[in-house]
């Protein structure tokens, strides 16, 4: 084989290798305990539970389902269960302090105490007035958050 042809072949192979390893699209499982199924149907048996963030290889696609491989296991998943970027950590977990209104209410309460020390009942009245003026019901939002159901319970419910 002439030398320049061989070099061209090596160059092409190298480019292919770089594209495959460096720029190939990665696919990740988005939710914890994602069910890998034996057939492209929700009612088909679960063959494995995949961890959140697992990198998978797409083998085939069938409408809204994709066939994937993870380690030695193969199976089907809904297309919407995977993405090309790894999942992010949960941010609005109820245990995290993301309730600005609580801080605001603490400040308001302090101000009320400073301006009208000893007048009990005025604090809650003032809070209510401010909330009404804003048109926002923070207590209602808190009730809504308290009524949340766990993912596991929700999943079980859908399977029945």
């Amino acid at each position: 084989m002439p030398r320049n042809k061989t070099l061209a072949l090596f160059f092409a192979l190298t480019c292919g290798f770089l594209v495959q390893v460096g720029w190939a699209k990665d696919t990740y499982i988005q939710q914890p305990n994602t069910q890998l199924r034996s057939r492209p149907a929700f009612r088909s048996p679960v063959v494995s539970l995949l961890p959140q963030g697992a990198q998978v290889q797409i083998l085939a696609e069938k409408k809204i389902w994709v066939k994937i491989r993870h380690q030695q296991k193969q199976g089907w998943l809904p297309r919407l269960a995977i993405k090309n970027s790894p999942p992010m950590a949960r941010l609005n977990d109820p245990s995290r302090d993301l309730k600005p209104h609580k801080k605001l209410r603490r400040r308001l309460r302090l101000r009320t105490v400073q301006s009208a020390t000893g007048v009990r009942g005025l604090m809650s009245g003032r809070d209510r007035l401010i909330e009404r003026a804003e048109g926002r019901d923070w207590n209602g939002l808190e009730k809504m958050e308290q009524g949340q159901i766990s993912s596991a319970q929700g999943k079980r419910f859908l399977e029945n």
Binding site: G147, I149, S150, S151, A152, R156, F157
Partner: peptide, 19 residues
């Protein structure tokens, strides 16, 4: 809430808690 939690467990954004 239960039906929604199930739906979000499959197709929600993992960084969010849905209510």
């Amino acid at each position: 809430a239960t039906l929604g939690a199930g739906l979000a467990a499959y197709f929600g954004r993992p960084e969010l808690q849905y209510y």
